[in-house]
Design a protein around this nucleic acid. Sequence first.
DNA 1: GTACAAGTTCAAGTGAGCTTGAAGTCAAGG
DNA 2: CCTTGACTTCAAGCTCACTTGAACTTGTAC
Lengths: 153, 153
Amino acid sequence: MARLLTISETARRSGVAASALRYYEERGLIEAVREGSGHRRYPRPVLRRIAFVVFAQRVGLSLEEIAAELAKLPPHGVPTRRDWSRLSATWSSRIDARIAELERLKAGLTECIGCGCLSLDRCKLSNPDDRAGRLGAGPRYWLGDRPAQGSGL
Amino acid sequence: MARLLTISETARRSGVAASALRYYEERGLIEAVREGSGHRRYPRPVLRRIAFVVFAQRVGLSLEEIAAELAKLPPHGVPTRRDWSRLSATWSSRIDARIAELERLKAGLTECIGCGCLSLDRCKLSNPDDRAGRLGAGPRYWLGDRPAQGSGL
DNA sequence: GTACAAGTTCAAGTGAGCTTGAAGTCAAGG
DNA sequence: CCTTGACTTCAAGCTCACTTGAACTTGTAC
């Protein structure tokens, strides 16, 4: 019979802090069964769900997006390979887009900045239409979060 | 004689909100001269500094790191090509590392997740030693921000 | 001279992704 | 019986990169 994991075991095995696990549960990313005492018990497959979350974060998805992805597969049953690969199919293009941007930035490092053309209003590097793969946190007009208000452009 | 730019002109030309420009000044990233009235006036070269900041953010540097980079070049004089390229030399490896990670993630998309080995404690994808190129905001143990406290590993 | 836009400072708010602290519950060991 | 430790909830705090609002001053247009 499959043993259930406590929250600290799950935290240790996944590398994700217990507080984060509770947070993920609150956000609907994972689920736990409860003991009579109210303590959480995690079935083993949750480890793969957590791995998926961590992985997706590295790719650049927000927790909300990850939740949407995870909602597509069975909440309790063990997901199949097919489930995973179907889920992840979406990301390939996203990763590619981000890689492409980084390549462009790298090129600009030697070309654009080096040659002095870096002036934002005409340089291709500052192309605001290219919104693929946001990086940092925080709302920045330049990064295309909002439909232009306040920044003028 | 080189005209000085107002803050709204600078915002429009750079695509960065005026409030952000003030914030950058507060953080020591850019400087402005003041009119008798106290209003900011920006010399033209500030546009390149701003461009540099925006660019560096896309690469993945924090404002603190960018400030450190910018501190290396003359605060008022126009930076030369050599200045820029020397500054940006550091980033190439960073970009490369991030690209490499994304490539690995992409590979894992079909391999690791697909085959079902994604279990975090042995999968290469969850290698916590690879800390290059953080993505999101927020302190996450897994991403290697802190020397392990609370997370156990 | 009087609007009104554009600028100023300063404090507080935002959103994502958590962490931390307080206060309480529950089970096992000595 | 009492301590210890692992767990619970809930509210509040934190970081980053800004934005927003209030209250006020300046510059420009008519």
